[in-house]
């Protein structure tokens, strides 16, 4: 099935994407879930809520279906600060420092596992 909903003959195919935001619009929050002990929190998605308490409650209903033992973090999306690799060359290649890799060192077999 297609969701790209076809443009009917005679309709404008201009992709309209602007509309006013209402005053009562709830801000967006990012949700992080740790499904069980022993693993770290993972970003799972976002939702809208007026405050942190309802963001947490909503996150339980939306993202964990109230599974027991799931730990949740919510952070206002506007509080997330990011770094994005603009260009591959922006990164200093880790391979330029081969001495950081275990494979760079030869240990005789008699020493055992190291």
């Amino acid at each position: 099935m297609t969701y790209e909903v076809p443009v009917a003959p005679g309709e404008s195919s201009e992709i309209e994407e602007t509309a006013d935001l209402a005053i009562e619009a709830w801000p967006m929050w990012e949700v992080f879930v740790r499904a069980r002990r022993g693993i770290s929190h993972v970003h799972i998605g976002s939702l809208h809520a007026a405050d942190a308490e309802s963001a947490l409650q909503n996150a339980r209903d939306v993202y964990t279906r109230r599974g027991e033992g799931a730990s949740l973090w919510v952070v206002r999306s506007s509080e997330i600060h990011t770094f994005e690799p603009d260009d591959i060359s922006d990164f200093v290649d880790a391979n330029e420092k081969p001495y950081r890799l275990a494979t760079a060192y030869e240990i005789p077999d008699e020493v055992g596992h190291m």
Partner: peptide, 14 residues
């Protein structure tokens, strides 16, 4: 969709 720079409420209005 919101990761592309729109707000959910705007999409609902449309």
């Amino acid at each position: 969709a919101e990761t592309l720079g729109v707000d959910r409420d705007q999409l609902q209005t449309l």
